[in-house]
Design a binder for these strands. Sequence first.
DNA 1: ATGAAAGCGCTAACAA
DNA 2: TTGTTAGCGCTTTCAT
Lengths: 332, 332
Amino acid sequence: MKPTIYDIARIAGVSAATVSKVLNNRGRISDKTKQKVLKIVDELHYRPNVLASAMKGKFTYQIALLIPDIDNPVYVQFLKHIEEAGQQAGFSIVMCSTDNDAEKEARQVAFMRQKRVDGFIIASKFRNDEVLKELLEDGVPVVLFAFEKPPFSIDIVTVDDYLGGVAAVEHLVSLGHRRIGVIADGSYSSAERVRGYYAALQSAGIAAEEGLVAECQTITLQEAEEAAGRLLGRRDRPSAVFGCNDVMAAGAMRAARKLGLDVPKDLSIVGFDNTDWCSLLFPELTSVAMPLPELGKKVMEVIVNRMERNEPTKQTVRMFPKLVVRGSTGPV
Amino acid sequence: MKPTIYDIARIAGVSAATVSKVLNNRGRISDKTKQKVLKIVDELHYRPNVLASAMKGKFTYQIALLIPDIDNPVYVQFLKHIEEAGQQAGFSIVMCSTDNDAEKEARQVAFMRQKRVDGFIIASKFRNDEVLKELLEDGVPVVLFAFEKPPFSIDIVTVDDYLGGVAAVEHLVSLGHRRIGVIADGSYSSAERVRGYYAALQSAGIAAEEGLVAECQTITLQEAEEAAGRLLGRRDRPSAVFGCNDVMAAGAMRAARKLGLDVPKDLSIVGFDNTDWCSLLFPELTSVAMPLPELGKKVMEVIVNRMERNEPTKQTVRMFPKLVVRGSTGPV
DNA sequence: ATGAAAGCGCTAACAA
DNA sequence: TTGTTAGCGCTTTCAT
C-alpha cells in the first residue's frame, strides 16, 4: 500500500498534524522535526493523496477544458498550449469535447463538477446558456477562451478577432485587391473577424458588396469548399478570399484548384489561426496568428486567480493577433 | 452548498446508508423508499461527490492519456477517439503530454497517481522503463496504445504495423515500383512498418537496397523533408517513397516539390495513419489507416476490465490496418 | 429492509 | 512547537 501521512508520522515519531504542517508549510515547526519528516517522506516516496486534501476544500488540481470539435486544428493548438501552461502551474487538463452540442455540454459539465475539478476553461463556443449561468451562479471558476459571450459577466482571455480581420484584409488591400470574399461560420469570433473585414474595406474606400460573404453551418473542409465554390463561381469572382479560419481557407484552396485557378496568381487566400495546416498547403497559407503561448499562460493565470480569490470584478484580456505572410497571397 | 447524501437522507427521512444503497443498487431496499429517495435526489439535483466515493476505494473515473507529442496529427486522432470511447464508458481523459522526455513522463505519472486516476493509457512510446515497471509492480492499470514494449508483460491495444507496412509497399509494387525508399523514425511502430516493407519487397522478389531507408530523429516536417531529400537526391533515386507516418510522407511531398518532381508521375508517396493531413496535401495522400474508433473502444474495454478485476494474464490486441488509396500514388 | 458507526487520508481549529 | 480532535462525503460491515 502507498504510505499515508500516518505512516510518516509514526516513523518520524510525530503526529499526523505535524506532518501535514511540514508538507504545507503552515504553522511553526522546528527545523529539526521538519528535516526529520522530510527525510522520511523522501525515503518512503510519500505523495499526499490529492483526493483526501481536496475533500478538505483544497484543489483537485484539475481543470476541465471544453472544446467543441477537435477536428479543427486550432483547438488542438489551444489544448497544447493550455496543457503546457497548466503543467507549468501544477494543474492537469481534462479534455472534454462537446461536439457543439448543448446536451453534451451539460453532461460534461455535470460530470466534471462531480469530480470537483477546480474550474472550467471553455474554448471557442458554448451554446448552453443555462448551464453557463448555473456555473457562474454557483461561483465555479470559469474562463472563456478565444471567444466572448456579451451578456455574461465572466472572465475572458481571447485574441482581438476584429483587429485580426482588419489585418488580414488590409494585407490583401495593400496587394491591390478590391474585390475580396469572406468565408465565415456562425461563431462569435467569426462575426468579429468579418466586422474587421468590413472596417478594413471601408477605410480603404472600398464599398462592401452583397454576396461576397459566404456562410458555413459547420467548420469542415467540405462545407468550406462548397462555400468557396459559391464565391468563386460568380461571374465577377473576387480576386482574394479571407477564410475566417484555416479550415475555411483550406477549403477555398481546394475550390480554387478544382476551378483551375492558380493561387496566388488568380486568387489570393488568407486564413486565420496559423495552424500547422498552413505549411502543408501549397502554396503555404498566409494566416493570422494568435499569440498562443501567451494566451495559454494568461488563461491559467486568470483561472488560478479566480480559484484562489473570487474577486467580484471579471476581466477581459484581449491580445493582439499577428499576420503571418506566406505564399498564398500576392498582388492582383 | 451542493447537497450531500445526508441532506437527501434527512429529507427522505431515512439514513445516509440507505441513500447510498439506493444510489449504488446494493443490498435490499423496499421499492417505496427507493422511489422516495430517487425523487428527492432528482429534485435537489443531487450528484454524488466522486472524490468521497473514490476515497472509499471506488473509481475516480479518470484515465490519464500519455501522449508524446501533440504536434503529430495522429496523436490528436488517438485523443479524439479515446476520449469519445471514454465518454461512452463514463470516464474522462486527462491529457498528459510528455514531449518524448523520460523526466516529464515520470513527473506526469507521479502527478496522476497522486490524483488517483484509475489507470494509464500510454500512446506510441514511453522511454522511462523504470517508471513503467513501478506502475506494473504496483498493480496500476496500464495499457499501451499503438505500440508494444516487448520485454514487458502488459496489456496492449494496437494495430498490426507490420501488416500495414506490407500493405503500403505491396500497393507500390503492384503499381510497378521496384525502387522504393522508406522514411522511418526510431519508434517501435516504425521498425515494424519497415519490417513489413522488407517483407513485401522480398515476396515480390525485389532485393532490398542499402541506402533506401532514411531515418529521422524526431517526427517533424522539416526533418522528414531533409530525410526525403537525402533519398531523392541520389542519382538512382527511388520512384516511390513510403513514409512511416503521414508527417514523414508530407515531408517527402515537400522535398519532391522542391526538386521539381511531380507526384505521382515522377514519385509515388504512401503515408501511414491516414490523418486529416492526407486531404490537405496535393495530391491527396495515399495512407494506411488504423481502425481508430474500434481501437479506442477496445482500449477502454481493456483498461476498464483491468480496473475491475486484475487478472494475471495480459492481453495483446492487434487490429488490422487498411490502405486508403488517394492521388499520391500511381504507376511508374 | 434499514440504520449506527467506523473509517478512507487529509487539514484545521483549538489545546497543551 | 506539537498534538488532539473533529470532520470533509461517502461506503460498508454489522446490528437490529
